[in-house]
């Protein structure tokens, strides 16, 4: 089966700086795919390249069999890719309900009101805040609103950029549960970018690891969780040597 989303040899620049150095990845329909990596590895740039906020110099982005790498982000969104950007990016002066309505801007069907109720089912706390301006919401509530707004697009694919950023462990757990539920119940394929490797590996089916603009590892999340490199560098499990410090030879396998 062809992948829902397929990136082939993507190279993206910020001015003269090459942020993505030839990335290829696939997201198969129905799965949760996690993209891990440290700060500045290029994860966010990959998402921006997919959603059209940035254009790649080289390579192709295929969604549902169409090449979309040169398109504007609003066009890409209307194809069914909902991007939940890093830092929520809600519309601060619109109220919660208006934010959700804007999520359905490209839709003309009659079930928009029903879908708003659906979002309130997933995030009951938003229902009580429906007439509040989004800027007064807490970080966690804004994250829920951003995900809810993305859901209003009825997307085939949801791009989630650091949904755990700045949230308490309890909220992270809650968001993680919601993401899994959306995947199972609403049949939304998910590409999740995270620095919180534990969460990303827990809920993901397949994982990619990025460093310095390249993908350095890819595998089922199950296996990634048990890989020694990942355990040491992303999950913080250190293998103490006999003398109580790390052996100088210990290096990541991909270097």
């Amino acid at each position: 089966m062809a992948a829902l989303l397929e990136l082939t040899n993507i190279e993206t620049y910020y001015g003269p700086i090459m942020a993505i150095r030839g990335v290829s990845l696939q997201v198969e329909a129905g799965r949760i795919v996690s993209l891990l990596g440290a700060n500045g590895a290029g994860k966010t740039t990959v998402l921006k390249t997919i959603s059209g906020a940035m254009d790649p110099q080289k390579g192709t982005v295929r969604f549902d069999g169409r090449e979309i790498q040169t398109r504007d982000p609003d066009w890409v969104a209307r194809l069914g890719i909902a991007h939940v950007p890093e830092g929520r990016e809600v519309f601060p002066f619109l109220n919660v309900e208006e934010n959700l309505q804007m999520g359905a801007f490209s839709r003309r069907d009659a079930s928009i009101a029903a879908d708003i109720e659906l979002v309130y089912e997933y995030f009951p706390v938003l229902k009580g805040l429906r007439k509040q301006a989004a800027q007064v919401l807490s970080g966690g509530q804004q994250q829920m609103l951003a995900i809810g707004r993305a859901l209003m697009l009825r997307p085939k694919l949801m791009l989630l950029d650091e949904p755990s950023l700045g949230l308490s462990p309890k909220l992270i757990q809650e968001i993680a549960t919601i993401i899994t539920r959306l995947n199972k119940e609403q049949n939304v394929t998910i590409l999740l970018v995270e620095q919180n490797a534990r969460m990303a590996l827990d809920i993901g089916d397949f994982g990619y690891v990025m460093e310095m603009g390249r993908i350095v590892m890819e595998d089922e999340c199950e296996r990634l969780r048990n890989a020694t490199d990942i355990q040491e560098f992303y999950l913080g499990m250190k293998d103490e040597g006999v003398r109580g410090r790390r052996r100088w030879k210990q290096r990541k396998t991909w270097r």
């Binding site: 906020a53 609003d74 950007p85 519309f91 804007m102 490209s106 993305a150 209003m152």
Partner: peptide, 20 residues
Amino acid sequence: IAMQAASQNQLAAFYVGIPV
């Protein structure tokens, strides 16, 4: 409301499919 949205957060407006 879409005009307000686009002026409050242009990128987010793009992402939700508003033809900015």
